[in-house]
Design a protein around this nucleic acid. Structure first.
Length: 614
RNA sequence: GGCCCCGUGGUGUAGCGGCCUAACACGCCACCCUGUCAAGGUGGAGAGCGGCGGUUCGAAUCCGCUCGGGGUCGCCA
């Protein structure tokens, strides 16, 4: 036989995969093994759809020639595990099933063996029902049998494979780094592992292999990558899991262009290989962070649609509307977004947007509904709760500034700049959904560049690294490090796609002095720096090459390639929003003996009905 | 930590103060049926409505608390 695409055949128990059989196999005697997808009993004729990882094939069982096979088939139920022997027969024209890849053939069974019976599963494998996720997770091994889930696992496998090949071809070396590492107080909350041998001491699970990969650069690896497991103990989201997988890469003697160019190739080639049906616009658009925030209010804007924001702060500043003028007087901003055709919305609908804004921290929204072109609008043409305060002149200017036309709705948010961005970003995404502007046949990748190096943390009263403390400042802004840290740009960049952040990277600091200067800015003095990051600082003194890198979430890329908005759909065994696993019960209390060995004392009883006290 | 949504037979839903000793679809069980492929037909079993407490003559239905799931803001170097 010539080279076959059948991956599941050739076993002792199984000569072919169910999904692999075609007309060309007609006449062959085959042995198949798989699960009963469906069974159709016609009395003196039983059809069984036998399913394995690659697909389905119809088995026909008749009592006359093979009574034993028929008897076995009679007792078979859904999800029974069978081994079937028989002959592949081309179907008559009237009985072909064009909906099935194997629909031109069927297997006439000569024997049917039940390898294992099965209880009726808690939900259907054969129907694509919307089953409660808790139940799916409790029985994940059944959930994963569903063809869409198997397909997601395979997609992910192929993505990983693609990445390994791609990186290898470009000279990157896959190096594994430790999972038990030192805790880092900065950044996300660490998952922590108590040390038995060093009482009172703890490892942390890595949030990312950051320091190790930089040290690999100092070690002369030059080009490193790893499909790395990362852990962050933060609240979860639809696109966030406590443990996730990144393509982590680091590159010596590289500049921003090298990395962004590599990523563009990687993402577009991966998409072309795995989802040739999707459109990937190239070149990937690049926006500075500043520009992204101005135009979209987000550092991960969905670029598949417009709905850009407009700044109306100057109009607001001189406005007779006190809320606006005082906002500007207090260093706030007033910005707006247009909903095309929104002038006809009811008060109730407009209130819906206001309520959405309130959930994101806005005191409210100002709405202006223009029934005429804003440039020529009279008071009768503008519907707004604040028209009286604003005046028709400013209403016109705002309408024009935002680019509204007759029939449009303008929504304005006023207040602190960050809040205004958050709110309008949320409104923008909601508008896109309502106006059906989201094209799900496009993967719109992009890069965000020139992030600020640091941001002021009001709670901690200090500067925090926006990316991480090893990010190099833009050389042009070096002078501002002491005088005006907020305006120092970092040599940091993010990759985005369809409104998701895929990952981020930067050119790193490779000089001890500059690193110390940045630590200083972050409130880490020389002594503390030496204590906590001495190995990095020392390494920089032993011939550290200039280097930079990137890391992106493989789960998220897989999610986008799979066409879902939920990361759990592309993870074999995900955790719930409360970071638990309903199948295994993790996390769970451990025995007192185990705690003792680890020198741990648990503060509270885990629940009131247990006798173990505080 | 805040806010929003959800929890009714195995699954998905309906019911939203008495008509509910809870309805429908799929699934399940039994029987019939030789060409179906979401097979078909007939019959049947299966939940007391996440838990606790309240309001009421009466609670799946209203209220409070609680548990669980989902979503989101904060958070996520």
């Amino acid at each position: 036989m010539t080279h076959s695409t059948d991956k599941l055949g050739g076993d002792v128990l199984k000569s072919h995969g169910c999904g692999a059989l075609r007309a060309e196999h007609a006449g062959q005697t085959v042995s198949l093994a798989g699960w009963v997808h469906r069974r159709r009993d016609h009395g003196q004729l039983i059809f069984i759809d036998l399913r394995d990882r690659d697909g389905l094939v119809q088995i026909v069982v008749r009592p006359d020639d093979h009574p034993d096979a028929y008897a076995a088939a009679n007792d078979v139920r859904g999800e029974y595990v069978l081994r079937v022997e028989g002959e592949v027969v081309e179907r008559s024209d009237a009985t072909r099933n064009p909906n099935l890849p194997t629909g031109d053939v069927e297997v006439v069974a000569t024997s049917v063996h039940v390898l294992n019976a099965a209880k009726t599963p808690p939900f259907s494998v054969s129907e694509d029902d919307d089953v409660n996720e808790l139940v799916r997770m409790q029985y994940r091994y059944i959930d994963l049998r569903r063809p869409t889930m198997i397909a997601a696992l395979e997609l992910r496998h192929r993505l990983n494979q693609f990445i390994r090949d791609f990186m290898t071809e470009r000279g990157f070396l896959e190096v594994e780094t430790p999972i038990l590492v030192a805790a880092t107080p900065e950044g996300a909350r660490d998952y922590v592992v108590p040390s038995r041998l060093t009482p009172g001491a703890f490892y942390a699970l890595p949030q990312a292999p950051q320091q190790f990969k930089q040290l690999l650069m100092v070690a002369g690896v030059e080009r490193y990558f790893q499909i790395a497991r990362c852990f962050r103990d933060e609240d979860l989201r639809a696109d966030r899991q406590p443990e996730f997988v990144q393509l982590d890469l680091e590159w010596s003697f590289c500049e921003e262009e090298d990395i962004l160019g590599l990523l563009e190739e990687l993402f577009s080639q991966a998409a072309a290989a795995l989802r040739p049906d999707l459109t990937v616009p190239r070149p990937f658009p690049r926006l500075t962070w500043q520009e992204a925030m101005e135009r979209y209010g987000s550092d991960k804007p969905d670029l598949r649609y417009g709905l850009e924001l407009s700044d109306c702060s100057d109009i607001a500043e001189t406005s007779g509307f006190g809320v606006f003028s005082s906002t500007i007087a207090n260093d706030g901003r007033v910005r707006g977004i247009v909903m095309p055709g929104g002038a006809s919305l009811s008060r109730r609908d407009v209130d819906g947007f206001t309520n959405l804004a309130k959930t994101m921290g806005a005191p409210g929204l100002v709405s202006l509904q223009f029934s005429a072109d804003p440039a020529a609008a009279t008071e009768d043409d503008v519907r707004s709760p604040v028209l009286r305060h604003l005046g028709i002149a400013d209403a016109r200017r705002i309408g024009e500034r935002c680019g509204a036309s007759a029939g449009d709705l303008v929504l304005l948010a006023a207040g602190e700049a960050g809040m205004v961005s958050t709110v309008l970003d949320g409104i923008r995404r909601e508008l896109a959904r309502r106006l059906d502007l989201i094209d799900d046949t496009i993967l719109n990748f992009g890069f965000i560049t020139d992030f600020p190096l640091v941001e002021w943390d009001d709670d901690g009263q200090r500067w925090d690294a926006l990316h991480h403390p090893f990010t190099a400042p833009n050389e042009a802004d070096a002078a501002l490090l002491d005088s005006d840290p907020a305006n120092v740009r970092a040599r940091a960049y993010d990759a985005i796609c369809n409104g998701f952040e895929l990952g981020s990277g930067s050119i790193r600091i490779h000089q001890r002095d500059l690193q110390l200067q940045v630590f200083e800015l972050l409130g880490i003095d020389a002594k503390e720096a030496q204590q906590r990051f001495g190995h990095m600082l020392d390494a920089f003194e032993y011939g550290a090459p200039p280097h930079g890198g990137f890391a992106f979430g493989i789960d998220r890329v897989a999610m986008l390639l799979a066409g879902t908005e939920n990361i759990r759909e592309v993870i074999a065994f995900p955790k719930t929003m409360s970071a638990s696993d309903p199948m295994t019960g993790a996390p769970m209390p451990i025995a007192v003996e185990q705690l003792d060995e680890l020198h741990l004392l648990v503060q509270q009883a885990e629940s009131a009905d247990q006798s173990a006290g505080g």
